[in-house]
Simulated scan of single mutants.
Amino acid sequence: MPRLAALVPCLLLSLGLASLWTTRPAAAEINCADAGTTVELNFCADKDYQAADKALNAAYASALAYIRTRDMDEQSDKERLEKAMRNAQRAWVAYRDSDCKDLVALEWSGGTGATAAILGCMTGKTIQRTKELNERYSEH
């Protein structure tokens, strides 16, 4: 087993990946207001997306709670509305992922900015969907 551990740096070096192993900045060192390298840009884009996704999940949960407490004539109407919401959200996620992860990825042809572009697309669409859910399913 020690021989295998000794081979890892050699393997990384031969694959041209040694710089990724040794120069990757720690998350605490990255200033997203001044990100410049591809690694930093990708880290910051992912951080933005994670925050947007968290907000979307909260808005979605709030929308479902609103639907469950909505005054409707029949319980079956609430159940159908909740089911329709779940279906619409699944369809929206599929659309967002296809547009950003497939279409945007192909537009960038695997260039160094592809990851940040994909994450930027996903963040923008996620923020917009969060806004829609908050506007449609909140007490006015």
Rank of each mutant, 00 (worst) to 15 (best):
L103W: 11
E139S: 10
F43A: 08
G36C: 09
A35K: 03
R86F: 12
N87E: 15
Q89C: 01
Q128L: 00
C10G: 14
I67R: 11
D34N: 12
I118M: 09
M1Q: 07
E135V: 04
L106P: 02
G113P: 00
L4V: 12
K83A: 14
E74F: 15
K54P: 05
A33T: 15
V39C: 07
A18P: 05
W92F: 10
I118W: 02
T130R: 11
M1C: 10
I118N: 04
N31D: 15
G124H: 06
R70P: 05
L7F: 12
P2S: 08
Q50R: 08
G113T: 14
S62C: 09
K78H: 13
T130F: 06
S76C: 14
G111M: 02
L20V: 01
L103F: 15
C32N: 10
G120D: 04
A88K: 14
P25R: 05
V104C: 02
E132C: 00
N42E: 07
L103R: 15
W108D: 01
A63C: 07
A116S: 10
A28R: 14
T115M: 09
L103Y: 12
A5F: 10
L119N: 08
T123E: 01
G113A: 07
N57I: 10
A18L: 09
L81C: 09
T112Q: 07
L20M: 00
L4T: 09
K78V: 14
R80P: 02
R3H: 12
R136D: 02
L103D: 15
D53S: 05
Q89K: 03
S138D: 02
D99Q: 13
D99G: 02
E107L: 11
L119V: 03
T123Y: 00
T69W: 10
A6Y: 08
L41S: 00
A45S: 12
A94P: 11
E79V: 14
K78F: 14
R86M: 13
C121G: 01
L17E: 02
A65C: 08
Y66A: 04
R70G: 11
L106I: 01
N57F: 09
A114H: 09
L17S: 07
N87I: 11
E79I: 12
A27W: 13
M72D: 08
V39E: 04
I30N: 13
K47M: 00
W21R: 14
A5S: 12
A33Q: 09
D99S: 02
D73I: 11
A114V: 01
D102F: 09
A105D: 03
A105E: 06
S98N: 07
L7H: 06
M122I: 00
Q89T: 07
Y137D: 04
L133E: 03
D46P: 09
R24N: 04
I30P: 12
D46Y: 06
S14K: 01
R96Y: 00
C10Q: 07
T112A: 04
P2L: 13
M85P: 06
L106E: 06
G111R: 08
C100Y: 00
T69R: 15
F43P: 04
L133Y: 06
A51M: 08
A94I: 14
A65I: 10
A6S: 13
L133G: 05
D53F: 06
